[in-house]
Simulated assay, not measured.
Amino acid sequence: MNSKFLGTGVALVTPFKSDLSIDHDALTNIVNFNVENGTDYLVICGTTGESVTITKQEKKDVIATIAKANKGRVPMVLGIGGNNTAQVIEEIKETDLSIFDAILSVSPYYSKPTQEGLYQHFKAISEASPIDVILYNVPGRTSKNMEPETTLRLAKDFKNVIAVKEAGNNVAQYLKLLKDKPEDFLVISGDDDLALGVVLAGGAGVISVIGQAFPKEFSNMIRLGLKGEAKQAYSIHYKLMDVTGYIFEENNPAGIKAVFEALNLCQDTVRLPLVPASDKLKQKIKSFIDNF
């Protein structure tokens, strides 16, 4: 079992200044805040990192800043995915992956391939990748569910397909994956609200959005869950439940950036077509943090 990815990974935001350039100082602070407070690994340039609106050069700069701040303290995962298989493979081949422990590759969005199409897409990625691959199923964003059978087929056929970040918000689907998976394959929750239940059912942990704002509490909750200490873990879950809902109320990552703004860790700037959280939502977030 790949113990590097047991526990809490966080899908890091890409902080922007008000002129929309990347705020590397804020990014450094967020990395330190997480590593020092118990986050187990970092996920870079995923959807929460607004990967679709950052340039190739900016992606390189973001990687350099995070790697420098992390100083090898925790494992790092790089988001490389898309709906053009050839382009994804080209990016894998062009990127220096020596500092990464895995890539996280999102299921193709918009194109709506069949299950066989999804299998062939990830087969090609697995064969091109020199490092481990974490599949990422997020039907709410891709508009196509990767069925458990397809995920498990990939898990069985390719040694470097080590895990799935499952974000279908579907308890039955999680349980099917957990029931039928190969022993060393990891089922990682991509749903913050369901993460604890998934861990208690046998999941490996979470790649979290809210976790990066409350790393101490969230990673502690997941650790307790991995030990089967449900009662203590749920008491933390309930404390974070409202804010976990708030950050997804309008859009991600505007919600988490509003939390970071309230914590003085970065501005709430996002790039179009995303817009910052509404004043009403910011007020709810602020009052939660004031009382936390």
Score class of each variant (00 low, 15 high):
A201W: 03
V133R: 13
Q212M: 13
D132Y: 04
K144H: 06
L200G: 01
V164D: 07
Y234A: 08
L224G: 09
K216W: 00
K156P: 03
R153V: 03
G168A: 11
E229A: 11
F185V: 11
A163I: 01
Q173T: 08
G205F: 07
L226T: 07
Y234N: 15
L152R: 06
Y136N: 06
F185G: 12
D180C: 12
I134N: 05
L186K: 12
D184Y: 04
A230Q: 15
V133M: 14
G197A: 14
V171D: 02
S235P: 00
E229S: 06
L186D: 11
G168C: 00
N137G: 05
E147P: 01
E217V: 02
F185T: 07
L178V: 04
V198C: 13
V133N: 12
A172D: 10
K179V: 00
V209R: 08
N145E: 11
E183C: 09
A204G: 09
L196G: 06
G203T: 12
V171C: 04
N170L: 01
P139A: 02
L177Y: 07
E183M: 14
V161F: 09
S235K: 14
S143N: 14
R141Q: 07
R141P: 04
I162C: 11
G225T: 03
E149G: 01
V161K: 13
D180L: 13
K216P: 00
L175I: 03
G228K: 14
V164C: 05
P148E: 00
G140C: 08
R153P: 00
V171E: 04
L152A: 05
R223E: 14
R153T: 06
E149V: 12
D192I: 07
K181H: 12
R153N: 13
N170R: 11
A213D: 06
E149N: 09
M146G: 02
N169I: 04
D191N: 14
D193G: 15
R153W: 08
D193H: 12
L186Q: 14
V199D: 01
G140W: 01
S219R: 07
S143P: 00
G197V: 02
N169S: 14
Y234K: 14
V133A: 13
V171H: 04
V171F: 09
A195K: 05
F185R: 10
P215C: 04
I188W: 03
L224C: 11
P182H: 13
A155Y: 12
G202S: 04
L178T: 09
A155G: 10
G211L: 08
T150Q: 06
L135E: 09
T142S: 15
D132E: 14
Y234E: 07
K159E: 15
G190D: 02
E166R: 05
A172V: 01
N220M: 06
V206T: 07
D193A: 15
K156L: 13
V133S: 14
A155M: 10
A201F: 02
A230W: 04
D157E: 15
K181T: 03
V199S: 11
I188L: 10
R141F: 03
V209F: 03
S219Y: 00
D132A: 14
S129W: 11
P215L: 08
E166T: 08
L154Y: 05
V199P: 00
F158I: 10
N220F: 05
V209I: 10
F218A: 05
G203Y: 09
T142C: 09
M146H: 03
L154W: 09
V138R: 08
K181M: 09
F158Y: 14
T142N: 02
D192A: 12
L178Y: 10
L177F: 03
G190Q: 02
K176P: 00
A230M: 15
D193C: 07
